[in-house]
């Protein structure tokens, strides 16, 4: 990037702009040179090897999220452990993408201003939905109770399935 040479050599403050001239473009060009110098410096932070390592880690983590399905998973009776594990895997993958692919690891402190409030808002929003939406089935109206699905319905369907398997030839062959 070209740095506009200041006409006044005594001006050590930086690029000087004339009135009426768009200040930002030459200033940005000048600082872009510094910025790009930083960027080129940051480029040495990246590099093909690092990106491929992150890619391998992401692939590994994706397969790990299936670990809860395997026979080696010890907490089959507690699905919450599985969910926590899957969320931890997702957060790790997200962190890898954000830090390395989005280059945030090497960015300046503005990244905290951007990410921390956004993360707080996201979690806060989900939590605030719990009373009205998450707990909506604690108190239901009669109309809703008439039509909503229940675990008993799943059981009924399972019974119908096993009945169909037993009486494979005739469907619905039962005493009224």
């Amino acid at each position: 990037m070209s740095t506009p040479a200041p006409h006044d050599p005594a001006a050590a403050h930086g690029p000087i702009t004339a009135p009426g001239q768009l200040a930002e473009t030459p200033a940005l060009e000048g600082n872009a040179a510094a910025g790009h110098a930083t960027v080129h410096g940051d480029e040495s932070h990246g590099g093909l090897g690092l990106y491929l390592a992150v890619f391998a880690a992401l692939c590994f983590l994706t397969t790990m999220s299936f670990f809860t399905y395997s026979s080696y998973w010890p907490w089959r009776d507690e699905p919450q452990v599985g969910w926590a594990f899957m969320m931890a895997v997702s957060c790790t993958k997200a962190l890898l993408v954000v830090l390395f692919f989005m280059h945030v690891l090497w960015e300046a402190n503005w990244k905290y201003v951007l990410t921390i409030p956004a993360a707080m808002m996201a979690i806060f929003l989900a939590v605030m939905l719990i009373p009205d939406i998450g707990l909506r089935n604690r108190m239901v109206s009669q109309e809703r109770a008439l039509h909503m699905a229940r675990p008993a319905d799943v059981l009924l369907l399972e019974q119908a399935a096993s009945a169909a398997e037993e009486g494979a030839d005739h469907v619905g062959n039962h005493d009224h």
């Binding site: 000087i16 702009t17 009135p19 200040a23 200033a27 940005l28 600082n31 872009a32 910025g35």
Partner: peptide
């Protein structure tokens, strides 16, 4: 006086954040 010898305030812009717009 700026580089062209005009009168008036000379504004020096610095980027507020170290990243492009």
């Amino acid at each position: 006086h700026d580089a062209h010898g005009h009168h008036g305030p000379v504004l020096q812009y610095q980027p507020g954040l170290p990243l492009s717009r």
